[in-house]
Design a protein around this nucleic acid. Sequence first.
DNA 1: GTAGGGTTAG
Length: 743
Amino acid sequence: MPLPLPSKKAETLILKLISTMPCPPLLNPSQLHSPPPTSLLPNCRTIKELKQIHSQIIRTGLANCPAERARLLSFCCTQHSIPGHLNYARLLFDQIPHPEPALWNSMIRAYSEHDSPADAVSMYIRMLASHSKPNNYTFPFLLKSFTRHVAANLGDGFHAHAIKFGLSSNHHVQNALIHMYSVSGETDTARQLFQRGWKGDAVMWNVMISGYNRRKQYDEACTLFGEMEKENVDPNEVTFISVLSACAKLKDLEFGNHVHHMIEEDGGKTIPNQKLQNAIIQMYAGCGAMDIAWRLFETMGSRDVVTWTSVVVGFANVGQVDRARGLFDKMPKRDVVSWTAMIDGYVRMNRNKDALDLFRKMQETKIQPDDFTMVSMLTACAQLGALEVGEWIRGYMERNRMKMSTVVGNALIDMYSKCGCLESARDIFRKMNSKDKFTWTAMIVGLAINGHGEKALNLFSEMLQASVRPDEITFIGALSACSHSGFVEEGRELFLSMITTHGIMPNVAHYGCLVDLLGRAGQLKEALETISNMPMRPNSTVWGALLGASRVYRNVEMAELAACCILELEPGNGACYVLLSNIYAKCNKWDEVQRVRKMMMDRGITKQPGCSLIEVHGEVHEFVAGDRSHRRSDDIYFKLEEMGRELKLAGYVSDTSEVFPDIEEEQKESAVYQHSEKLAVAFGLLNCKAGETVRVVTKMRICNDCHNVIKLASELYGRHIVVRDRTRFHHFRDGDCSCKNYW
DNA sequence: GTAGGGTTAG
């Protein structure tokens, strides 16, 4: 029977005892009759075998032979596949009375490769305390592990140490320092070191180019590659891979082509290996040149998971998401990146249900989703308003102790606020200890679309106080907060401060917010003036804001102007005809109503079927107006009729003013009563227990009648009903709506 | 017994 292995504690004691025991006669390997135990190391696969070799070393009296000891320690430090290798290395190391610099370096490297910069640093400090001097190897090992945070806080100090110990002229140390500064985000400092460094071969150039890539400074990466050409330094495979990656990110096909030609005309010096071939395909795919990428893919000798993923992503990015899926299904091997890329491809094409389905398929495999997967999934949930799935994902991450990075936190805030759960969104926001501009922006937008304009603006001030620089999206959030809450003056000031204080030039969307803000406040003339003074061509959103305001304030002239401009830009915009005819109807201009109706018939304009979504028990249900396809359709229409009867008793009168003018008067009432929003709400009332919030997402602007019905239903059934429409939330409670009847 | 650079996804 094999002896039981000693416990950790016993092991430490044994090792201590051994080190204090009288030594066996000191030998060196040449005095042995058989090969030294360390010659067995290349075949060592488990911690048990490692311990056997170690005991042989002790038994043969080689334990104090520096070379044998070093061989064992070095082996131990690098065996990442053996669990516990690092702790065992540390135990060995701690038994050595005066370790030489190389042994300290080995330990520092081991911690560094284990992604434990704190341990690597503390090893370095112990090294200094024991009067060992760092050498040329020390800093490359140490600095390699630095995260952004560590590099930003300790980087300068270690740079100073390197100088103090006279190591700063060594190429390896210089490269390590450049790498470290680019990790910390200080590419300018990195560049200064680069300028002074030795640039005879490609390595330092590679460090600098990849440093720029790391900080998304792709232009600089390409420019530096150009300088390298001028200086006649031969790029190698690594250089090509980095610069092609930069081209892909920039979508710079011309420069990418140039690099590809350089590789081909390299006179055989660079024979593209798998990684370089992947980088070439990925460059073409990234630039959207799928014909070339596909040709290269087809003629490629061997394809790995990266090759496949690159073309899958490429097709998804040019909108051919079904072709991407076809390839994905054919992949011989898929890893977490390929799954996530495909899921994300669906999300970006707004095929969120497909994304959810694919995630379920992924869970049938052994491949674990990571934080990237979760961000894509949370985005899908946000777009669908799928709160239950979103919450499940949050729980999944907690159960599996997954990394809660800032990006994940941001996605959670976005998911919660787009599901109308502001409290949960704010809870995540409060708990996040590192907030970036996206965190603040997500929360500001969340507050704004949920009707908390004042809180959104307060948070915007807090953001400025925290010295986080807002970007153009933050201003969209802040401006729409003003607009939704009627803060006209604040909005105007904000718009000006955007240019004067923050140096951000407003784009067409910002002007849209401004027009909306003025229009909602009834300042139609000012709104029109704003449009005519815009430095760019107004788009249909801008005119749409004016049209909406004209409807509320019954300004026929302005409405006609706005509608004409929209139809000029988008002749097939059915909603615009409807809105215009509604305005005519409200002003009793029936001839005009008929004229618009005829115009639509002549031009063959039909109403695009808008749909509404509701998530029940983790499943997303989709409805279009008059939908009979749902498996519980009969129940839904029964519920709808029951609602109708009860609401009529409570005083409800149907409002058919916004019905598409292509149907006869007597059918209008039933048409309006089968709107997808109502079907979804009825389904929600059928399936959600008393006290549960009913949450519906609709892709359109909610109509007056639906708004009335849901308001009454919230009172009649004592329910909180949340409807997210195209631009904002309606929180219906006790017969009232958070939008204050302006949307 | 120890050194440097790279590809796929938010």
